[in-house]
Design a protein around this nucleic acid. Structure first.
Lengths: 136, 136
DNA sequence: CAAAACTCGTTTGTACACGAACAAGTTTGC
DNA sequence: GCAAACTTGTTCGTGTACAAACGAGTTTTG
């Protein structure tokens, strides 16, 4: 087919938009990756939960959340303990350092979202978020 | 901050939308990854070019395009030769097998884009693409 | 109660993605 | 005409992402 244009396909554009967002992210929050921040933020928001449960809440499969959690633990941001009622479960919890780091970087997180959407008007921002939400 | 909601941030939503798209992609085109298809499609569209040039056209850095190109070459989809005028340059070109595979999967590529956008109306699809294009 | 089905966390393998550093080749500037 | 600056492709290290397979623990079911 001669009329297929890669540069106009949703998937290709989504990838580029995501690249730009990741660049903005690492510029404003070099301490954490987007996934690490998501995990930390969710733990601060909802408190202690098991590793796989956390993964489910932020859309990461078991293998991915393991790596993310390991890195946060290694950096001393999370506490870990075994669930006494279900010895399979590894309960994760943001500790003092984790909460402190979170509070230190939330403002940056807000600026990141703002900057990512900055080429759009207020109405366009609303509309984009509405449309993207339909594609989740 | 108590009013920061991870689930409403562009970056987080973008990641989820992308996940859904990748799932649709691998379902409809298990032969190639999105990046491999992008590289092949660009080579078919524009013909022979150097490895880094190809990377630039599909927004992949030199380290990434190397791996993608290596895999396509290993699968016998590309021809490689040295540029006589600039011995640093590695010229890539889709060969017969590459063009054949491309032609075999373009239809699937179109269905992938369609299915990704299927929760939206025609007007919404147009609008989403317009807004995303502003965020590239 | 015991077997089947399921869940939790882990490991392995593959594939992006990008920063940083490097050697070899090419172009520029003086 | 030659040193400095740049480009090309490569390697290394780190960090997602997900499929598949696994052992160990828990729940369901007959």
């Amino acid at each position: 087919m001669d009329n297929y244009r890669l540069d106009e396909q949703v998937g290709f554009i989504l990838r580029r938009v995501n690249q730009r967002h990741l660049a903005i992210f690492s510029q404003h929050m070099p301490e954490l990756t987007p996934t690490q921040f998501a995990a930390l933020a969710k733990l601060v928001e909802l408190g202690e939960m098991s590793q796989n449960e956390l993964g489910r809440k932020i859309a990461m499969d078991a293998a991915t959340i393991k790596g993310v959690a390991d890195r946060l633990i290694k950096r001393g941001l999370l506490n870990v303990r075994r669930n006494p009622d279900d010895s399979r479960r590894k309960l994760l919890c943001a500790n003092i350092a984790g909460v402190a780091l979170y509070q230190q970087v939330v403002a940056a997180a807000e600026r990141i979202s703002e900057k990512t959407l900055s080429p759009l008007s207020s109405a366009e921002k609303q509309e984009l978020l509405r449309l993207l939400a339909k594609l989740k």
